[in-house]
Design a protein around this nucleic acid. Structure first.
Lengths: 330, 330
DNA sequence: GCGGGAAAAGAAAACGATTACTTCGTCGCG
DNA sequence: CGCGACGAAGTAATCGTTTTCTTTTCCCGC
């Protein structure tokens, strides 16, 4: 910068003023500075700027698993929006562990991130405190957290399994099982609740197994489910990862979908319409959720709003073939 | 920090020395400082540290599309490795445009990233210069770039389509089409070349269409391909995104795989074994590629190596059902 | 007990920007 | 013609560390 200042024959302060546009500068100086900047290829050192401003133009995105298409899609939206606002993105994947989540949130605080969007690994939102201490706004995404200080964006998880279960009941199924899990999370508990309540209301006995929201566990549990005498005629699967596992197990067992087993899954990854047979799903509005979350964060950054907001978005049943019903279109 | 220093009755310099462990400190002072740190909950300001050290502990990851499972998987590996080394990850998705790539690479330079891994949007590696000017090591990933200054990790793209095409030829097919594209990239050109050369060597006429490595274009091109009189009996599809599109088109046209059309795809996303029928694929060793790339970068960061390295990894044919051959196992 | 030398701690100068404060100059008005 | 006010640019402080350079302290041997 001193090089630029010297070349333009002005002080560093003037260079800064030209570049930031924060104060008036005489036109000839202005031009000389701009020329000098061009000649030297000068670029302001972001670290120094950050130190002075006491913040980085960086948004932290914390998700349990970046490889999960659900979060992947959300991160993709976050990236687009952050870039268009001129912010950089810190990617944090916690592997569903609170330790890694804590470490990342602390790191984001240490780096003075502008704001953070977090899909938490636990329902207590472990590790958020360092952020709040520094007044870094936090938007909680996808999973409920008991913290009044954060905005929250969710979808209606109870309704997700309710929709799925009701659809299968309506098709005449009675022995409907549920592959779910993660009862430590509101998301998991609500999905179980939606299923259980709907079954009970229909006078049926719920039968849920714990797939831990993981592909491998879901595969094992589904195998077991299919080996039971008088096995279920229909299956609700709680998320896209478990669907992968469940489908593997079903295929391995040689069970035919939908005739021997109807399937409705939560989540609608890109491949859901292409598997054998095309999956009937309850889709989360991931893109919309992500846009809402980033919108709330930007609102906070651009000044506004004291009280925190909770936004719950609706899901959509997409009937394809795996439920055994002829879809209207596809 | 001054607070800690005061509380411990020492100078800021001593606090720094205790925390960094860079110099010897008398045991009683050491303990007092540590106590004071605990009491105050002091955490060093990363921005100030970065300014002093003239670098951030941050690794930039630049990919054309974070939502593409291929890159998504790679990013997932990068994140794991970066975290375990104590680095943070800057996520940059370029949407396959050189402008966004340029912007991100410049931003990474401005932020004094420690190192950068980039899967470039163009074959000239646009925008790398600002990084090299600051001696920031760059590892090019997945796509060839004509720049001697960067390490490069690739898979053998010519061999990818060669393997796929040879497999179909061996199964007796003659009219084998190829859905590919992105001839502006070495990756696209090589995959076309692998296909074309193999067809020619077998005395067959190659027939390639341009799906631009995109789902929507591939769908349209495949539709057209299927509408042709005397249409191909087999199809090689150049990547996972195009496979999604091709499968949609094939399904929409009511064409049966593999009897009416055999399919072999490049890439093996998690759903490939679950579609109807299970896809025969040539899988890239994504995880291994990602590990190699990060390994090379870390090597550079930890001091070593002057000359740049080029690492080309082999692909693997995974026979399932879409090629029309009974797979040995699945 | 004192001098020398090493070890440890403090003072102060960076790092590179921004910005509060000061100064300089000019212009307008009385 | 002089003074006040305002605009623009320069000076220097600041952000929070680390690290160099001094200074102090301590220990040991003579």
């Amino acid at each position: 910068m001193l090089e630029v200042a010297a070349l333009a024959g002005v002080s560093a302060a003037t260079v800064s003023r030209v570049l930031s546009g924060a104060a008036a500068v005489r036109e000839d100086h202005r031009r000389r500075v701009l020329d000098a900047v061009r000649q030297t290829g000068y670029r302001p050192n972001r670290i120094a700027q950050n130190l002075r401003r006491q913040r980085a133009e960086t948004i932290g995105v914390v998700v349990p698993d970046i490889a999960n298409p659900h979060f992947n899609e959300a991160v993709s939206v976050f990236e687009q929006l952050a870039f268009s606002e001129g912010y950089r993105l810190f990617l944090c994947s916690t592997d569903e562990t609170v330790e890694k989540q804590r470490a990342y949130l602390q790191a984001l605080a240490d780096e003075r991130a502008l704001g953070v969007i977090v899909a938490p690994a636990d329902s207590r939102g472990s590790g958020l405190t360092p952020l709040f201490q520094l007044d870094i706004p936090v938007v909680v995404f996808d999973r409920w957290v008991h913290d009044e200080r954060a905005d929250i964006v969710l979808c209606d998880n109870t309704d997700a399994t309710r929709k799925a279960t009701e659809h299968l009941l309506w098709l005449g199924h009675e022995r409907i099982a549920y592959v779910g899990g993660r009862l430590d999370l509101e998301t998991g508990a609500e999905r179980l609740e939606g299923y259980t309540a709907t079954m009970r209301a229909a006078g049926q006995t719920p039968f849920a197994v714990d797939g831990g929201f993981r592909s491998d566990l879901a595969q094992r549990e589904t195998e077991a489910l299919l080996a039971v005498p008088n096995r279920p005629t229909a299956l609700v699967v709680g998320n896209n990862l478990m669907t992968l596992g469940a489908l593997r197990a079903i295929r391995a067992a040689g069970v035919k979908i939908p005739h021997e087993l109807a399937v409705v899954a939560i989540d609608d990854p890109s491949w859901a319409a292409l598997v054998d047979p095309p999956l009937t799903v309850v889709a989360q509005p991931v893109e919309q959720m992500a846009e809402t979350a980033m919108g709330l964060l930007l609102e906070r950054l651009h000044g506004g709003r004291g009280e925190s907001i909770r936004s719950v978005l609706p899901l959509e049943l997409r009937v394809r073939a795996s439920c055994g019903m002829k879809p209207e279109t596809d």
